[in-house]
Design a protein around this nucleic acid. Structure first.
Lengths: 228, 228
DNA sequence: TAGATTGTTAATCGATTAACAATC
DNA sequence: TAGATTGTTAATCGATTAACAATC
């Protein structure tokens, strides 16, 4: 691991995918892989694979390829999965509960240390070994436990005020499921958005775009038949 | 709405965001907006805003700007949100239940017509007015109701076999929450992935990258102080 | 050594930004 | 008409792909 220094987001967003494929290969007992083989598997080009890995200094060996295990470990380290991180989750509604119950936090070095909601019915119940606390206790808790990452599973309306509070508590990293745009108000925060609704709309586009294309094709076909 | 024809994914992925901001502006009663104003709000450049809209034919008026309401409607139509779509959801675990309960399907023209799981305890229970069915009835149901979109909320191990069944049932559009890569096995499907784990890893990278940078800065500072 | 495959530089492609004439 | 702002072309920037010498 040598160079590094402003790796582009395009590269970074591919890293988890590499990690996923390499973990699987390692599990299957594959020892070595060439950029070509990996690229074919992942639907990248071999050039891109090599270019990507060389952002961090070459891990490969000419004439041989890459050691699956080593490569996997390198990426794990680049992603900082070993770095311990303390997270709190805000909003224990359907989505928040699913995230809390479902996500593999530990393999990423993340410890979920607190969950907050203002719903009386939820406060005091336990989720993944964490007791859900009253939103009112947010400041008190954060001052004591210093989380560095907040997971936002609240409605858009609540997010603005909430982010103000979290920002004041010096939290700068956010995994944001709400539709509120944190970066416009706080330029120095790092936000990773999971806008499920946007993702679904993109799919909607592709469905209806295909439908339209098919209709156009049918029309062309029809015209052809008429003129032919 | 005139030209169109192979709009790049970069543009398409921005459309839901435009839609979100324009809906909000419309709700606030804003009538018109210039590319500059909208760009500032959304942290784009005015050039990009105009360039994006012109992929679909100009909606604006020189010297005036864009009508918020009209622009919103155009994007709604481009995204195909009015196009009726029938969706089934597979996997009613934590994540599946959250997606079923939480997502605004109707405003996107999507009707959730079926939910499937193999867990005896879940089968027969109702989620968002849809009764959860036994996975065994998948073929029977799909032949009858012809869904065109499947939402996959199953573990990776189950996804491979499941996608084979769905593909055989002529389903070509997928909203995929599993870590299984559908496109490698079925090149002609349209998949929109929501890889929450990948997203969280990206955030991990940015956290640990910042930590490292800070350490380097401290070291430099330290060296400077020593030498100075 | 010969063959394979990397690391890296150069070429290409695509996306974003800047500039400005057209026009409301 | 003058001012504003679009639509569109040209320039720039960044990311991907191709090519190949270095080397295991």
């Amino acid at each position: 691991m040598a160079k590094r220094d402003n790796i582009s987001m395009s590269v970074i967003r591919r890293l988890p995918r590499y990690y996923r494929f390499l973990s699987e290969l390692a599990q299957e007992g594959v020892m070595r892989i060439s950029s070509k083989e990996l690229a074919d598997k992942m639907r990248f080009t071999a050039s891109q694979v090599r270019q990507d890995f060389n952002c961090f200094g070459g891990f490969g060996q000419q004439g041989y390829g890459y050691s699956v295990e080593q490569l996997k470990n390198e990426i794990e380290s680049i992603l900082g999965l070993h770095e311990p991180k303390r997270a709190i989750l805000i909003g224990a509604g359907n989505l928040g509960r699913a995230v809390a119950a479902h996500m593999a936090f530990e393999p990423k070095g993340i410890k979920l240390i607190g969950i907050f909601d203002h719903d009386e019915k939820l406060i005091g119940t336990v989720l993944r070994n964490v007791k859900i606390s009253d939103m009112k206790l947010l400041e008190q808790f954060c001052l004591k436990h210093q989380p560095n990452l907040a997971i936002l599973c609240v409605p858009k309306e609540a997010a603005k005020e909430l982010s103000r509070r979290l920002y004041a508590l010096d939290i700068r990293y956010y995994w944001n499921f709400s539709h509120y745009d944190l970066t416009t108000d706080y330029p120095d925060v790092v936000v990773e958005n999971v806008h499920m609704s946007d993702s679904l709309m993109t799919l909607c586009y592709r469905i209806s775009d295909d439908i339209e294309k098919k209709q156009t094709q049918t029309h062309l076909q029809h015209n052809k038949e008429q003129s032919g």
